[in-house]
Structures are given as C-alpha cells and as structure tokens.
Simulated scan of single mutants.
Amino acid sequence: MIQVAGRPVSPDSVMDFGRIERLIIQQMHDSAEWFSYFSINELRFEVNMRKTIMESANEMNTSQVTFTIFEEARCNPAYWTLTNTGGFLLRPDVEPSDAILDIYGNSSLYAFECATAIIIIYYQAILKSIGQSQFNAFFQNIYLYSWHTDPDLELQILYSDQFLPGDVVYFNNPDFHPDTPWYRGENAVVLSDGTFFGHGFGIMTAEEMIEFLNSQRFPGSVQPAYLDTLITRISPTTLQKLLSLQSGRNVYKQLKGVIHHNLCSISSIQYQFYLNIY
C-alpha cells in the first residue's frame, strides 16, 4: 500500500513514471507493507533510487571486478588506501565521487567480497541520484569494509517474505564447507525481472543461487541453503535527507565504529550483531 500526503496512491495515478518505475510502484502497491510519503517527490526519489540500485548492480555484473576474501582484497591506490584488514579507505586528496566511479571504470584493479559490493552499489546509486557535487558534500570519509557505512548512509533491516526490486536479500548457507567459508551465504540485489545479482555469482534465479550454495556444503550436511526473509534497504531517513540535500558537510559527523570481523559474505543483521556486542 502506498500513501502520499495521507492519501492512498494507485499505480494508475502515476502514469508519468517509466516502465521499471511503474513495475516497482505496482509491487509496492500490492505489498502488505505500508509505504508512506509526505510528497510525490519523495515517492519518486525512492523509486528512482531502487532503479539506480538495480542499474549499479547490473553494471557491476558486467564489470571486471572480482570476488575475493579480505586478505586478498585489491583496489586502485590512486583513489584508495588498502588497509591491513582488507578495507578501502578513501584518499584525502581525491573526490569521493571519482573514487566510487573508478571502481566501475577501472574495475580490473578491484577485488572484494559480497557485503562490500552491496555498499559500493549503494554509493554509486546515490551518486547517480544526487550528482557529484552533493555526493562529495555528503560522503567525504568513505571507508569500504563489509557492511560499514558513512553516518549519512543508514540502512534499514527488516524481515518479510515480500521483497521489492532494489531490495537486498540474503541467501543463507548455514552448513557451508569449512574449506570455503565465503560460501556461508550471498548478499544479492533483487532485480526487476525476479532474478538476483550477487557479487561473485552473477545474475541468477533464486533456485540457481540455492543450488550452487548447496554444492558448497560440508559432507553429511542436512541443512540446505535457503533464501532468508532478511531484507536490507537504504533507510527512509537517509532517503529524506538525500532528497532535501541536508548535507553534514559543515557540521561535525561522528564516524561510526568499524568491526573488522574478517568473515566474508555475512548478512547485514550479522554485522549489526557484531556492532552491538563490541
């Protein structure tokens, strides 16, 4: 269900949207979840963000970035400092937008795991949505490591068996083989045709994702891989802030703590758990 300024909105009332946008709106309308906005511009901004998230996922799929563990992570030293934990720290002498775009433009120089890939996709989608100038104002201290984000990029984590294009879901493989712990799961972007993009996997159906993860279980395993009900999104608060361009550029931003867990392919809720206990 969609509500704008206190009134329900039907897909027929937003015909000025494109095909992909209308598909997203139709699924939002049909969902049991309640989507409420102060204005049609807020709705338009979120729908466009979902579209750009899918575009960024598709661009990563066709790029030459590779999947690897934190110990073997790689980045372009012209834009990033590779930390000893496998994170990418933005160099102070480069623009944040240029550094994010370089991941796609010089993709063969980069290797990272799938949670980091999702955050990169989010940053590029935001960059496409608000432009380079505003992006550089918001995100001056980017550090890419697992699910870590800038304070101006908050995530929403929820559980539902209904997901939308542009959502991030998690394929869980609890009985992963100890020799290949990076197959403990896969973070994947939901695409508009019902397939999923997961870094290191490519674009697959849910059945194909699960089939591959099942092939990576330890001998004698009785717990098959499955698509979890966990959903991760850019939070509504972040979307509102980005839409209104309320940048924290001229005010002090307290940077978030980082948990260097050294575990590839963990879910957003697992990272949140680590943040809460450490």
Rank of each mutant, 00 (worst) to 15 (best):
G198D: 10
G198F: 13
G198T: 03
G198M: 14
G198I: 06
H199S: 01
H199F: 04
H199D: 04
H199K: 05
G200N: 09
G200F: 10
F201T: 03
F201R: 08
G202I: 04
I203G: 06
I203P: 02
M204E: 11
T205I: 02
T205V: 03
E207I: 00
E207Q: 07
E207F: 07
E207M: 06
E207P: 02
E208T: 10
I210P: 13
I210T: 07
E211Q: 09
F212Y: 14
L213K: 09
L213S: 00
N214D: 06
N214Y: 08
N214P: 05
N214L: 02
S215E: 13
S215W: 14
Q216L: 13
F218G: 00
P219G: 11
P219T: 09
P219E: 07
G220L: 08
G220Q: 03
S221P: 14
V222W: 13
V222C: 10
Q223L: 14
Q223K: 11
Q223R: 09
P224L: 13
P224T: 12
Y226F: 11
Y226H: 07
L227F: 10
D228P: 12
D228E: 11
T229C: 13
T229L: 10
T229H: 15
I231K: 07
I231V: 12
T232P: 12
T232Y: 11
R233W: 04
R233P: 00
R233E: 00
R233Q: 02
R233T: 02
I234L: 01
I234S: 00
S235H: 09
S235P: 15
P236L: 05
P236R: 05
P236K: 07
T237L: 06
T237Y: 03
T238H: 00
T238P: 05
T238D: 02
Q240N: 14
Q240H: 15
Q240L: 15
L242A: 01
S244E: 07
S244F: 01
L245C: 03
L245Q: 06
L245H: 08
L245M: 08
Q246K: 10
Q246F: 06
Q246C: 08
R249Q: 12
V251R: 15
Y252G: 11
Y252C: 09
Y252R: 12
K253D: 06
Q254C: 10
Q254V: 11
L255A: 00
L255P: 04
K256T: 00
G257S: 08
G257D: 06
V258C: 07
I259L: 04
I259H: 03
H260M: 00
H260C: 06
H260P: 05
H260Y: 10
H261C: 03
L263T: 03
L263F: 13
C264R: 14
C264D: 15
C264S: 14
C264T: 14
I266H: 15
I266D: 08
S267Q: 02
S267F: 03
S267I: 01
S268V: 01
S268P: 12
I269S: 12
Q270C: 09
Q270T: 11
